[in-house]
Nucleic acid binder design. Structure first.
Length: 480
RNA sequence: GUCCCCAUGGAGUAGUGGUUAGCUCACCACCCUUUCAAGGUGGUAGCAGGGGUUCAAAUCCCCUUGGGGACGCCA
């Protein structure tokens, strides 16, 4: 395939939604796979709702995911500007042409009039559409409206005969009756383009070859195709990817939990995991591969592998994938990425080496970066607390006190406080006393860590150090 | 209401006329093991329903049902 040009065209009216991120990802993957261009175009024609903050958040999200664009904001290219609001000249140029050719006309109907039109159509069991009242009005009539100070909108004269077909790369052929479509508005009374018109003209101007977007745009497509035809432009290829649902099979929204990609960023998900997971929603390879390095993903991504049906976002699977990536990561990088979370928990980070080691001892257990402080704090802090479980299920148990006091004595006499020596000492003690290892291991772990789970007992003891271990055992005796 | 799309276990999916319906997550059990994980082995669970076509249907056609989307001077 030659000169593939695709775009992601968000409107800056809110956060970058998971669904949007997935659409961006598919476009990006498609572009990278075909060595084409990925363009970011900001659809900010709704000046009421567009904000700079939203734009910032979207850009931040895309950057975090690593979806770099070849043309777009902060990356000017041949086909700019890349903010739709700055393209009104282009839109008007195309609109003028349609007017000249009689393919568009001015409409002076008020919002109230339109509303009652729609209501009436609906009551008659017809699709709510504009009734074409201003389609063939005389110049006199127009003049009269103008004199009244009415501001017109520009409507597209939609052909009412025949059907419009979409040859969708994912869905195959879809067809729509033109008679069901109305003369939709292409320029608002403010003179700015509406979505359908702006998209088409900008896609033409930017030489977009493939329009890859959410399923929810299918019903817009016939209108857009009609526009392409009226403008005499060749159609891009269309590929409508399925939507993402929440667990109740309804459109993913706030109540399903986090939907903004920046939230995942903040919670300590890894970019690689997020990208991998998003790719798996609505796309797959025939061998059901689950884990993809980025290059591999680019290499294997095809629209053919996209499914037609909506998919449900599964937070559990995302977590699993995140854990997979955490386990694969080298310890320096992991520690580095965990830093913000560790700092946030006020842990002592002066001794980098110690910190690294602590993280590595818990690496296999980490799912999210934000879990890290809670997993390692007892190894770094001087004072620890004891969990209810550690007290009730272990320390309070018969015999714990004696074991702890014996072990404390043994430790006192140790010179080489190493993992190896510690293990030998404890095992020897078990043999001597004819105790099951658990009878000793468990109280010792609880006494020293304050909890019932953690890294291997002896590495942990060595790491915490003789002095602190002794102090903690003594402290723990209060609970026995 | 009108039009459109979709339909394989709880979730993501493979499968394009002949398979014991495969894989991943989740769940359960066992193994490993000082704990928690990780890992290993095994298990529960699925072609929405009904009609066709065919020697043969998850796969092709029709209907029903269910879910979703669109119908704005929003994008």
């Amino acid at each position: 395939m030659k000169n593939v040009r695709v775009r992601f065209a968000p409107s800056p009216t809110g956060y970058l939604h998971l669904g949007g991120a997935r659409t961006a990802l598919f476009n990006w993957l498609f572009a990278r796979h075909h060595k084409g261009s990925f363009i970011l175009r900001i659809e900010d024609t709704d000046s009421q709702r567009s904000t700079d903050e939203a734009l910032e958040v979207i850009i931040k999200g895309l950057r975090w995911l690593g979806l770099d664009w070849d043309e777009g904001p902060e990356k000017e290219g041949e086909y700019g500007p890349y903010f739709q609001a700055q393209r009104t000249e282009v839109h008007r140029k195309y609109a003028d042409r349609l007017v000249r050719e009689g393919k568009a006309y001015f409409c002076y109907c008020s919002p109230e009039e339109l509303e009652s039109m729609r209501k009436k159509a609906r009551e008659e069991g017809k699709p709510p559409k504009y009734n074409g009242r201003c389609r063939d009005q005389s110049d006199e009539q127009r003049k009269e409206y103008e004199e009244q100070g009415r501001k017109p909108v520009l409507r597209f004269r939609t052909r009412q005969e025949g059907t419009t077909k979409i040859n969708d790369l994912i869905h195959g052929e879809l067809s729509f009756e033109n008679s069901l479509l109305d003369d939709f508005i292409i320029l608002k009374s403010t003179g700015t383009a509406t979505y359908n018109f702006a998209v088409v003209t900008d896609d033409i101007e930017m030489k977009i070859t493939h329009v890859i977007r959410g399923d929810d745009h299918i019903s817009n497509t016939p209108r857009q195709i009609l526009l392409y035809e009226a403008l005499g432009s060749t159609l891009p290829e269309f590929a409508h990817i399925p939507m993402i649902f929440g667990s109740d099979r309804a459109k993913l929204s706030k109540r399903h939990g986090a939907v903004a990609v920046t939230e995942y960023m903040k919670e300590g998900y890894l970019r690689e995991a997020m990208v991998n997971y998003l790719a798996l929603l609505g796309w797959s390879t025939t061998d059901s591969q689950q884990i993809f390095e980025l290059d591999d993903l680019i290499n294997k991504f095809t629209l053919k592998g996209c499914s037609k049906s909506a998919s449900v976002f599964d937070f559990k699977k995302l977590e699993w994938l995140n854990g997979e990536y955490v386990r694969k990561m080298n310890i320096d990088e992991l520690t580095e990425k965990a830093m913000p979370f560790i700092l946030d928990a006020n842990l002592n980070v002066e001794d980098k080496e110690k910190l690294r080691k602590a993280v590595s001892l818990e690496q296999e257990k980490i799912k999210l970066l934000k879990d890290i402080p809670g997993l390692i704090d007892f190894m770094l802090k001087d004072d620890i607390g004891y969990t209810d479980k550690a007290v009730a299920k272990v320390l309070k148990k018969e015999g714990s006190r004696e074991v702890l006091s014996d072990i404390m004595e043994k430790i006192n006499g140790m010179d080489d406080f190493s993992e190896k020596e510690l293990e030998e000492m404890v095992r020897e003690y078990c043999r001597r006393k004819d105790l099951k290892t658990g009878k000793v291991f468990h109280p010792l772990r609880a006494a020293v860590s304050g909890r019932t789970t953690g890294p291997g007992l002896f590495v942990m003891l060595e790491f915490i150090g003789k002095e602190r271990v002794l102090k903690r055992i003594e402290e723990s005796m209060k609970y026995t």
